[in-house]
Simulated scan of single mutants.
Amino acid sequence: MQERNIPPLTALCFETQTSFKDMLQYVRVIARRLHISAIASGLEIAGPIQWIYVGADGQPDTLFSLTIALPIVPPGKIIDIPEFAVKNLPAFRCISSRHDGDWGRLGETYGLIIGNVISESRVMTGENRELYIHMDFENPDYNITEVQVGIV
């Protein structure tokens, strides 16, 4: 676990309001479309897919903002991709930890980070990010995810 200051980045983004109960419809689907759109538009991919949660509280029915972002090299011109938006994501201060394995156990990693934040009397921002370093849908124990919990 470490405190990090993530620099601002440019990303091709999909944005929606959803809940944990309903968000599985976006798994694999949006990431694939982001990659296809970026390549078709001549954009250079600059990092792994990120899921950015704002207002998620872990409850299945709570609505929250979800951004699925593909980091890109900033384009030199305005790019029009109807389904997605090119966004400049601001710098992000967080406590991060690497999660190895099945995403069904991500709650354990969040619990460790949040417990650390609370024990140090830190304040969370309500924004969390997951960077999917390695995704293996055939062998979920091989997944590598960086979990980032935003702090003030």
Results as ranks from 00 to 15, higher is better:
135 M>A: 12
142 Y>I: 03
110 Y>K: 04
45 I>L: 07
92 F>V: 09
116 N>P: 01
106 L>G: 07
47 G>V: 06
73 V>K: 14
78 I>P: 09
133 I>S: 03
30 I>D: 03
147 V>Y: 11
106 L>H: 07
127 E>H: 01
48 P>N: 12
33 R>C: 00
130 E>W: 05
65 S>I: 11
45 I>C: 04
109 T>D: 13
147 V>S: 05
31 A>G: 12
90 P>K: 04
113 I>T: 15
8 P>G: 00
124 M>F: 01
89 L>W: 11
16 T>G: 00
23 M>T: 10
119 S>W: 05
18 T>W: 09
133 I>W: 07
95 I>D: 06
121 S>T: 11
22 D>Q: 13
39 I>R: 00
128 N>C: 11
62 T>Y: 06
84 F>M: 10
60 P>C: 02
70 L>Q: 01
49 I>V: 09
9 L>Y: 15
72 I>C: 04
69 A>E: 08
134 H>V: 10
57 D>T: 10
77 K>R: 13
40 A>I: 01
111 G>S: 14
56 A>P: 13
119 S>R: 15
90 P>T: 02
82 P>T: 06
82 P>H: 08
44 E>M: 06
148 Q>E: 12
24 L>Y: 12
128 N>L: 00
20 F>S: 07
85 A>F: 14
21 K>V: 02
24 L>D: 13
70 L>F: 00
42 G>M: 01
100 D>M: 08
67 T>V: 15
93 R>K: 15
17 Q>A: 03
134 H>F: 11
36 I>K: 03
151 I>G: 10
21 K>S: 04
28 R>L: 00
26 Y>F: 13
152 V>Y: 11
6 I>R: 10
65 S>N: 15
137 F>S: 10
42 G>T: 06
127 E>F: 00
26 Y>T: 02
1 M>D: 05
130 E>M: 02
10 T>A: 03
43 L>K: 01
17 Q>L: 07
58 G>V: 03
40 A>L: 05
13 C>T: 15
111 G>Q: 14
118 I>S: 10
34 L>P: 10
1 M>N: 12
137 F>Y: 14
102 D>G: 02
77 K>E: 09
130 E>Y: 08
48 P>C: 09
107 G>V: 01
27 V>M: 08
41 S>A: 11
25 Q>K: 14
98 R>V: 11
75 P>W: 01
2 Q>H: 12
131 L>R: 09
125 T>G: 03
79 I>L: 09
145 T>K: 03
79 I>R: 00
54 V>T: 15
16 T>L: 03
2 Q>G: 08
67 T>Y: 08
149 V>W: 11
125 T>I: 01
30 I>L: 02
111 G>P: 04
57 D>Y: 05
54 V>M: 08
87 K>F: 02
32 R>F: 06
86 V>N: 06
107 G>R: 00
36 I>P: 02
144 I>A: 09
68 I>P: 15
50 Q>V: 02
116 N>K: 14
27 V>L: 09
5 N>M: 11
41 S>G: 07
132 Y>F: 11
116 N>C: 05
124 M>C: 04
148 Q>Y: 12
